[in-house]
Design a protein around this nucleic acid. Structure first.
Lengths: 201, 201
DNA sequence: CGGGAGGTTGAACGTTTGTATAGCATCTTG
DNA sequence: CAAGATGCTATACAAACGTTCAACCTCCCG
C-alpha cells in the first residue's frame, strides 16, 4: 500500500465520519501517518483530494452495479423476499465489514455535488433496468408508472443505508446486521408482496 | 420581527443550504442585515446559535406531529391512497412554500447529533401509533412485525424528503410538487395496496 | 430631565486553516 | 558513480475564522 493510498483511505474514513469541512488536512495527514505537506503534494489541494475520493467511491458503486448487470442470474435466481432486501443489503455484502463507504455515500448523496447526482442517476438506471427484467420474467406485477416505481423502490432501499443509525436506535437492532436484516427482509417482502393497505376503505 | 429572529431565520436558511461548517458567522450576520458581533451577543457562540436553530426546527416538527395526534380524524378520514402520500407530503403542506425547514431537517437527520436522533424517534413513535390506529380501524392489514413495518413506512416517506433533489433530477418532476405528488401518490398507493411482487416465484 | 439597561457596531485579537517553499532522503537510470 | 527525479518533512505565511471588547445609540423608568 502506497502512502497516496493511505492518505486517500484516511480521508475517506474521516470525511465519512465528520464531513468534508470538519476535517483538516493535518488530521488526514496524522491519520495516514504522513506530513500535511505530502497530502497537498499528492492531491494538489484539499479539494483535489475530495474529488479523488469522490471518484473512488463512485467507482466502487460502479463495480457493484456492473457486477449486478453482468450476473443478473444471481439476482433473478433469488426469490422475491431476498430480492426485497435490496440494494442496501447488496452494498453491505459487497463491501468489507466496517467499510466507511456507506457513510461516505450518505454524505455524497446529500451534498448536492455533481458526484452525488451522477451516482444516484446510475443507481436509478440500474434499478429501473432491473425492475424491467423482473417484470418481464414475471416476478413483478407491471406498474402503471414504471419510472416512479423504480424510484420508489430505489429510495426505499437507500433510506435504510441513509438512516441506518436511527433505525438501529429505535428498533434496537441494526437493520443491516445479521439479525436485523432477517427481520427487515421478511417485513419488506411481505409489504411488497401482499401490500399493507386493505382494499375496502 | 426582532433582530434575533432575523438572525435565527437567516442561519436556518444558510445552514440548510450549505451546512453548518460551510457557513461563517459573518455570512449569517450579512444575510440578517446585522453585524457579526450581534450574532454572538444574542446566541453566545456559533454553536449556541446552532442549538437554538435545532430546537426551533424540532419544535416545528413537534407542532406537526401534535396536530396529527390531536386530529387523527383528518388522517383517518382520508383514504389509503392519500395517506400513502405520507408524512413527507404532510410536512410540505404544513410548511410555507419554499421553507428551508425540510432541507435543514435533512441535515439534522444525517448529522448524528442528538437533536436529529430525538426528532427521528418522535417521528417514529408517531408513525407507529398511527399505524396501530389504522390497523385497528381496518385500513391496514396486521403486520407480523409492527415495529419494523412502522420503521419501513416512515423511512420510505422520509426518503422522498431526503432525496427530493435527486428524484426531481431523474424523474423530471418534483415528487413533492403539485404534479409529481400526484404521480408519486398513485404509484405508492398501488404498491402499498396490491404489492409489487407476484406470489408465484 | 437623568440614568441605567439592553441593542448594536466596528475594530481588534489569537488561533487555525489551506497552501507554498525550501531542503533532506531515497531510489532509479545512464 | 553521478545525477536527476521522486517521496517526504519542516517551516513559514497570508487569509479567514470565531470571539472579545470598548464604545455608542436608543429607549424606558423614576
Amino acid at each position: 500500500m502506497t502512502a497516496r493510498t493511505h492518505i486517500r483511505d484516511a480521508a475517506l474514513a474521516l470525511f465519512a465520519e465528520r464531513g468534508f469541512d470538519a476535517v483538516t488536512v493535518r488530521q488526514i495527514a496524522a491519520a495516514a501517518g504522513v506530513s500535511a505537506g505530502l497530502v497537498v503534494h499528492h492531491f494538489g489541494s484539499k479539494q483535489g483530494l475530495r474529488e479523488v475520493v469522490d471518484e473512488y467511491v463512485s467507482s466502487i458503486v460502479d463495480e457493484l452495479l456492473a457486477a449486478l448487470e453482468a450476473d443478473p442470474a444471481a439476482a433473478l435466481a433469488a426469490d422475491g423476499a431476498q430480492l426485497s432486501g435490496g440494494l442496501g443489503e447488496l452494498l453491505i455484502g459487497f463491501l468489507p465489514a466496517g467499510s466507511a463507504v456507506p457513510a461516505y455515500l450518505r454524505r455524497l448523496l446529500l451534498s448536492g455535488d455533481t458526484a452525488g447526482r451522477t451516482v444516484f442517476r446510475r443507481w436509478y438506471d440500474a434499478s429501473a433496468a432491473m425492475l424491467a427484467r423482473l417484470t418481464e420474467a414475471g416476478f413483478m406485477r407491471a406498474s402503471a408508472d414504471p419510472p416512479v416505481r423504480a424510484a420508489f423502490m430505489l429510495i426505499n432501499d437507500l433510506a435504510v443505508v441513509l438512516l441506518r443509525d436511527h433505525l438501529t436506535d429505535v428498533l434496537g437492532v441494526d437493520p443491516l446486521g445479521p439479525d436485523g436484516l432477517r427481520r427487515w427482509s421478511v417485513e419488506v417482502a411481505a409489504a411488497y408482496t401482499r401490500g399493507v393497505f386493505t382494499t375496502e376503505a
